[in-house]
Nucleic acid binder design. Structure first.
Length: 552
DNA sequence: CGGATTTGACCCGCGC
DNA sequence: GCGCGGGTCAAATCCG
């Protein structure tokens, strides 16, 4: 008979090393299921004894005590996740009372010993209750802090944007009060500026937003471009300016050829200048998703039309270009390319914001990319601010995440990279990707040991992004065939509720930082796999499983 | 026949 | 100025 009283807590999960303190379910490696079948916590014995069959450690109610003959090991099994091996051979809680059946052969010493053990058990029970309540309290505090933090961040970003806009407006008025909009070509502008490119502000919000976005109206591209060169923003970013020109070029024909409904938008532009300008800058921000998939394209709920394919330098796999066709003139595009080093990895880069209602299937992804773009805009403030804002995002995510998302706020495209492919991004990073990022100035966030991205800008983690994206990454049979190895998912069990909460958080919150942080927090809370009934499973007409995928 | 895809050409920015 | 590379266009082609 094992009289050892060492309380061994065996956990079959690694959750305990992952801030379990703040999780709703597992606390200290326990799954706080109200019912603990303690029938197995008693060692086998030939002796009949009254045993505690059920112990409700965490309920307000007293543990349920049943008299029952039972045999078992010394462990407490909890919802098939954790096993608490008590090493105890417990007898009834009121051992020695009339209701207990004690073997007459047991000595008084043994009885006292048992009483002591029972007291210890009770103390443990109380302690667990205390910890549970404390866990709940801390969890609530964390939630509150997160929300407050997000609100503060948003407020700060808004203030900075307003301030920037004020500066922009004042400078525009003071330095070029009589410029005629739309009267000069880019070439003329270059000549006027001695061929130099005048830096401009990344964001153009506020009253000056009455400027027409070049991507919305080709005929205004020059004027808009000119106004940008006149902006005289304190920010000196040649790349952004250059990129803007490229965008002007790209968008103008696009608007002519496949965006006939841009005219109404243009007419609204005067009434909603901010939206217009924001969309223009959205065009620059990108969200890149790296995921294992043998399908030609991950299904994200939107309809895409392929408009080009190019061989990219440094990657034998061609890069395919898609644009959203769910609405005429939708500016959203995406690039799909297989990783050069590991062709099972599919790199999908989203750019832009949808200008149309989205089906539920596409909401999560679209909101995420849109919000990411928003976030990156805030991270594109003048250098110090940009750094700070980007740190906001990472810091918002880091408390609950570990390693797999990257912010590259540097030009030419500020990009958020979500790596869903491996636990160790160092191993997963393709050289191609590294090359891209090596060219960029970057900074890095502190991450758990061994999980940093040495070549990425700001790293943060989102191995749970499949769920954040509302994408049925576990279900490849239905649409995309997207393969996410469970080995590569830190939290292989994500509940549908969690998914919903995460998706809702993102779709409801235009701010990527807050939304993503909330989503990750929610996901870290743990649960079980989505069975593939994700909203992402909606029909996507032409976007999937074609044989034309680059690299296939 | 209409829509989607393919693919060569083209444009533009950038670096040398 | 020239070449390279990324991105897009659009005619040709494919496909249901």
């Amino acid at each position: 008979m094992d009289k050892g009283w060492g309380l061994t807590l065996e956990t079959s999960s690694s959750n305990s090393d992952r801030a379990g303190f703040f999780k709703s379910k597992p606390v200290f490696g326990f799954n706080l299921s109200p019912k603990y079948n303690a029938g197995e916590m008693f060692s086998s014995s030939d002796e009949k004894r009254s045993i505690v069959n059920e112990v409700d450690f965490f309920s307000d109610k007293k543990p349920i005590v049943k008299k029952e003959n039972s045999q078992g090991d010394n462990s407490i099994r909890t919802d098939d996740q954790f096993v608490v091996n008590t090493g105890l051979q417990l007898v009834t809680a009121n051992a020695g009372s009339d209701q207990s059946t004690v073997d007459d052969g047991v000595s008084s010493e043994v009885l006292e010993d048992k009483r002591a053990k029972i007291q210890q058990l009770a103390q443990l029970q109380i302690e667990l209750e205390r910890m549970n309540s404390e866990n709940q309290r801390l969890k609530g505090m964390l939630t509150q802090v997160n929300s407050s933090y997000s609100a503060l961040q948003m407020h700060l970003v808004t203030l900075m944007q307003q301030q920037q806009q004020q500066q922009l407006n004042s400078k525009t008025e003071n330095t070029h009060p009589h410029e005629v909009v739309g009267s000069k070509t880019d070439e003329e502008k270059k000549k006027e500026n001695n061929g130099t490119i005048v830096p401009r502000q990344f964001m153009e919000l506020g009253p000056s937003g009455s400027k027409v976005d070049p991507m919305d109206e080709p005929s205004h591209s020059h004027s808009s471009s000119e106004e940008r060169t006149l902006s005289g923003s304190p920010r000196t970013n040649m790349e952004l300016v250059s990129r803007d020109k490229a965008i002007n070029r790209e968008e103008s024909p696009e608007s002519e050829s496949w965006a006939p409904n841009k005219a109404p938008k243009l007419m609204n532009s005067s009434s909603k200048p901010v939206e217009q300008s924001t969309e223009a800058t959205m065009r620059k921000a990108r969200v890149s998703v790296r995921a294992r998939s043998e399908a030609p394209m991950i299904s994200d709920g939107c309809q895409w039309r392929k408009y080009g394919q190019k061989m990219a330098k440094g990657n034998p796999c061609p890069r395919a270009y898609y644009r959203c066709t769910m609405a005429v003139g939708c500016p959203v595009r995406k690039q799909v390319q297989r990783c050069a080093d590991d062709r099972t990895i599919l790199i999908t880069t989203y750019e832009g914001t949808h200008n149309h209602p989205l089906p539920p299937a596409a909401m999560a992804m679209a909101s995420t990319t849109s919000a990411a773009a928003n976030m990156l805009l805030s991270g594109s403030m003048p250098s110090a601010d940009g750094l700070m804002n980007t740190n906001f995002l990472a810091r918002a995510m880091l408390p609950c995440s570990s390693n797999m998302a990257t912010i590259s706020a540097s030009a030419p495209f500020p990009t958020v990279t979500l790596d869903l492919t491996a636990q160790n991004p160092n191993a997963a990073l393709p050289n191609y990707h590294q090359r891209i990022n090596q060219a960029n100035p970057h900074f890095q966030f502190p991450l758990p040991a061994g999980l940093n991205h040495p070549n990425f800008a700001a790293s943060m983690s989102a191995p749970q992004m499949p769920h954040i994206m509302g994408q049925p990454l576990y279900n490849q049979s239905k649409f995309s065939g997207l393969q996410i190895s469970q080995d590569n998912i830190h939290h292989p069990s994500i509940s549908h509720d969690t998914l919903s909460a995460a998706t809702a958080a993102i779709t409801a919150d235009p701010n990527f930082t807050a939304a993503l942080a909330a989503a990750i927090s929610s996901i870290i809370g743990g649960s079980h796999p989505n069975n593939g009934n994700s909203p992402m499973s909606g029909p996507s007409s032409n976007n999937n499983n074609t044989s034309s995928f680059p690299g296939n």
